[in-house]
Amino acid sequence: MKGTEAYQELLSVIGDEPVIHANGYICRESFSLKDREANFYMIGSMGLASSIGLGVALCKPEQKTIIFDGDGNVLMSMGTLAMIAAAAPKNLVHVVFDNQVYESTGSQRSLSNVIALEAVAKSSGYREAVKVTRKEEVKPVFEKLMQSEGPSFLLIKVEPAFNPATGRVTHTPEEIKARFMRALSNP
């Protein structure tokens, strides 16, 4: 499945939950499909979407928090999987778009063709860690994870098929933050 198809499946389940996006195509794809105030687009600080998401989840325990991560981003901060598992926030769903490459920088291969990131998450101690490869599975599996206690990890295997004509995030970083904070205090 293409990344853009996976996003569409997920979007049909998402309501007003905060979604923290890893840098690169993940921000651009999501922004172009549906821009939301509750989307935090992390344009720099590669690898930190997961720790930002953990910080939000811990300080808003009553609110489901979602991370949209990339395989390259997860591999850069594997230790954060341990922090998430140890802190064990029930309200955190960690989604990874695994195209097995650093697509944003020219599709150089990452390591996720040989390293099973969902197995790393599971053995770190995530309550649930699931890998999906077929488009039909995405929505029902994500729906189930959203309804159950976390922390949960959803690895979606996608083709590296980003359309380079997709726009970039047009909000300034300060606007992104201000909107996100507004959305968080008025869910």
Partner: peptide, 23 residues
């Protein structure tokens, strides 16, 4: 909360701040 690396701790603090808690 013990962090595994200082940059991950920066991320945690950023999330906490945006969720209304001074880190």
């Amino acid at each position: 909360l013990p962090a595994v690396r200082e940059d991950a701790a920066v991320g945690l603090c950023a999330g906490a701040y945006m969720a209304g808690t001074l880190p």
